[in-house]
Amino acid sequence: MKKQKHKNALYLSDRQPLAFAGKIGVLMMYIILASWAAAIIWPLYQMIVSAFNGRQGSYLILNREFEFSWEHFEYLFEETLYLTWVKNTIFIAVTTAIVILLIVSFTGYAYSRYRFKGRRASLMAILLIQTIPTFAGIAAYYAMHTIISNIIPAFSRQMMLVLIYAGGGIASNTFILKGYIDSISTELDDAGRMDGCSSMKVYRLIIMPIARPMLAVIGLWSFIGPFMDYLLPRVLLTSPQTYTLAAGLFTLINDIRNTNQPAFAAGGLLTAVPIVIMFILLQNQLVSGLAKGSVKG
C-alpha cells in the first residue's frame, strides 16, 4: 500500500518543482490575468445588460433594477434606419474587399515574381505616402466627387468611400501578399510553365489557389475596415440614409433630438457579435497574416 502511494507521487514533469516564491509568483500571475480579464469583461457586460434592460431610459445609468426586454431592439429596428445602415455598410465593405482583392492579387504576384524597374522604390514611396492620414485629402475628395458625379451621375458618395478605402489598402496588402507568395517555391511556377501554363494561368491555376488563405485574410481585413471606421463616413456621407453603421449609431448618442443610449448599446451589440465570432474563429489566420506581411515582406 505504501509503495503504491510512492508511485503516485512520482514526479513526472520536466519542470523544476516550484519553490514557495515560485508559487507566489504563479498566484500573482493568475491574479493579474484574472483582473485584466475582469477589466475587459465588465464594460462589455454592462453593454449587454443595458441592451436588454427594459428599465433604462434614454440615458444609461447604473441601476440595479433589471427587467429583460427587447424594447431597445424594437426601437432600433422601428425608429432608426439601422437596417439601412447595415445594408450600406455591407455594400461598402463587400465592394471594398472585391476591389482590393482584384487589384492586390495582381500586384502581389507581380511584385513577388518579377524583377522590374522601380519595384522597390514604388513600394517604399506608396508605403510612406500612406502614413499621411487619408483624411488629409478630404477637401479634394469632396471636390473630386462633385466633378465625377457630374460626369457620371450614378457615382455616389458611398462609391467614393469605396475608392478611398481601396486606395488606402493597396500598398500594405500588396506587401503582405507579396510576402506570402515569396514563400511559395518558384519551382511550382516552373512546373506550371512546363505543364503548359501562361503567366496568367500560372497565377490563376497554381499560385492563387495556394495563396488562397492569405487572400482570404486580406479580403476579410478589407471587409472589416468599413465596419470599424467612423471618420470618413461621418465626413463624406451627408444623409442618414447613406450612413454606415458607425456614423449611424453615433447619432443615437450624439444627437440630442434622438438620443437613445440603450438603443445604441443594442445596435452596438448586434454589430459586434458577428464580428467577434468571426475574430475568435479566425484569430490565428488574422494574426499570422499581419505578422507575416510585416516580418517576411
Binding site: L33, I40, Q46, M228, L249, Q261, A272, F279, I280
Partner: peptide, 23 residues
C-alpha cells in the same frame, strides 16, 4: 484568457469608445 483578451480588438472600437463615453 486568449479568447477574453481578444475581445477589445474584435469588438469594433467605435462601439466600445462610444460606450465608454456613455459610462
Amino acid at each position: 484568457f486568449r479568447t477574453i483578451y481578444l475581445l477589445p480588438w474584435a469588438v469594433p472600437s467605435f462601439i466600445t469608445i462610444m460606450f465608454f463615453s456613455i459610462m
